[in-house]
Design a protein around this nucleic acid. Structure first.
Lengths: 340, 340
DNA sequence: TTGAAAGCGGTACCAT
DNA sequence: ATGGTACCGCTTTCAA
């Protein structure tokens, strides 16, 4: 055999050098042709030969090599810690993704489930993204932001209950949701208000903020707030309903519509009249809430649009030294239907 | 100035060379220390100096450079075309992600929204993932699989209605869902069966397969199948309900529970008795379906567990030349409740 | 115990 | 119009 270094040459991944060899040109030429480099003129026959060679070998450029050479990437990293699920969130992610792609970014969701705050930030930084958009992931600290920026991220943007130092922060003060719901109930004359929080997740920022908002809205009005941890299953809801009368509550605000629907049904099955005896309100305005009887009251939260956020990312990337902005962007309003 | 090439040296991203310089050692030593290379002994004082230098500079290794040198990555790519949403899917993704991370893989979701089949595969191949797990993304062709493999992917796994040549295929024959639902309805004595499909998505593989299964189950039984495109909003549902009696149907199978709930409510509001006049069955066994009255009948689909899929990925990576396996893995069963 | 140097796959400058 | 070649940051022989 005449090629001792390459035993399984056929098996190995084709590189631009392979293309060059097959086309009988230099690697430089291959690069020019495949990237349509405009600052250099290549004859049409050569272009064809290169293209054909690339095609024949099934050549695909190596992103890592390219970005290593370039010194930067077009990657926007979306860390996904725990999926918050929810159809709104999904739609929003899709929108954002499409908009960013339209601006020629590569969107990558990176799961950092097992990692805590700063470790996660480090893991993200290793990928050298041009921007990081952290959607409500707890634990992105100012230090984490610094690590990312020092490793070349030109924009770090958080969408969270509280601003993070050093990052552009879109503040969605989830307390407003709780406040809005409870204020609504109080206006309706309710005074003893249960607040349902998911038991699964443990204390996360979202539900904590919502209950904190509830407390705040009740303060000084004479109304009482009673936290009610609840698992998302029928048995748990039935159990709460069973001891309902003992709790002495005349209203309940649930973390979101899913939990609200679950509890409302359990209450009804237990003979508790909704809204007569107990008013119920949820949050997030799911379509399904309108299908129950009584129709579920809810709090609607205006999300930022994916398009707007994508523009913000792009602006931040272009002007990395701009002072981090903090935007309050939560519109929140109660949508009374029949359950309250 | 004495450093013309580096005007903003302070601004630039620290490399292992910077760490080496600061610690007064060579880059090799830095690499040994930071990777705890066991084949080489480094004195403790040196280790400390290196660690301190790295810390001080905020050094984070460059993943692209590393994998370029290594010739391979530990990245498992999960393409996400359109989010199928759904809480089951979410849980499953989380499980899978966690299990893969446990096996020391890096999980990356890559959004290829705007791209069609083979372009998408090419884009994925540029990242040189060690494995690609395609979850129901239409358009991963045998050619796409070939591109991925030639660019170094050691495993390509699809979870889809049909096997894909060259890839390990977990076949979830969604026709079984439609068959199961319709068979159930026929057993209950129904003969004129509407099948609701999402109007939004356009004809996608999932809903097409489900309706195809419905047709098959009806064939030869004398039962009639009537496709009913439906948008996911109340008006659309009301419109269908308004012309319900004219359709002459005595049962309906909806693509999934969400659509089933929506239509069932609209029918009830129109005075159609469920299940007396019209039986309703959905699919996916959402918790919320149990909250309506009558409780929604459904078809439950057993998903593969994330853990199992992760193991399959790992096995395939270790044995890349193993023949692609095809597993049928859909357990499907009707769960009759009160609506049918 | 440590350092020098080659090379992974591209890109872009400078020659030719 | 092309080719030669020096990098990008990191790992890993091989020598010292």
């Amino acid at each position: 055999m005449s090629q001792p270094p390459k035993q399984s040459a056929a098996r190995s991944v084709p590189t631009s050098a392979d293309v060059a060899r097959l086309a009988g040109v230099s690697r430089a030429t291959v690069s020019y042709v495949l990237n349509n480099t405009s600052s250099v003129r290549i004859s049409e026959p050569t272009r064809r030969r290169v293209r054909e060679a690339a095609e024949e070998l099934g050549y695909v450029p190596h992103a890592a090599a390219r970005s290593l050479r370039a010194g930067h990437t077009r990657m926007v990293l979306l860390p996904t810690a725990a999926f918050p699920a929810g159809p709104l969130h999904q739609r929003f992610l899709n929108e954002l993704q499409r908009a960013l792609r339209g601006l020629d970014y590569t969107v990558v969701q990176y799961g950092s489930l097992g990692l805590g705050g700063d470790d996660a930030a480090r893991a993200w930084a290793e990928l050298r993204p041009v921007a990081v958009v952290s959607l409500g992931v707890a634990g992105l600290s100012p230090h984490g932001v610094a690590v990312l920026k020092r490793s070349g991220a030109r924009a770090v943007i958080t969408l969270a209950p509280r601003p993070v130092e050093g990052a552009h922060s879109l503040v969605m003060d989830q307390r407003a949701v709780g406040s809005c719901a409870v204020t609504h109930l109080i206006e309706r004359g309710r005074r003893a208000i249960g607040v349902v929080m998911p038991r699964e997740a443990g204390p996360d920022l979202l539900s904590e903020a919502r209950i904190e908002g509830a407390r705040r809205a009740a303060a000084g009005t004479g109304a009482r707030i009673e936290p009610l941890p609840l698992s998302y299953d029928e048995e748990a809801a039935a159990a709460v309903a069973a001891r309902w009368r003992g709790l002495g509550l005349d209203a309940v605000y649930a973390y979101n519509d899913d939990y609200a629907m679950l509890l409302m049904r359990a209450l009804q099955d237990r003979g508790v009249d909704v809204p007569g005896e107990t008013a119920v309100i949820g949050a997030d305005d799911l379509l399904l809430g309108r299908l129950l009887r009584p129709r579920l009251s809810t709090v609607r939260v205006d999300m930022v649009t994916g398009r707007r956020l994508a523009d913000l990312v792009d602006r931040a990337v272009r002007d990395p030294d701009g002072a981090p902005e903090t935007h309050e962007l939560m519109g929140v309003r109660a949508i009374p239907r029949e359950s309250s």
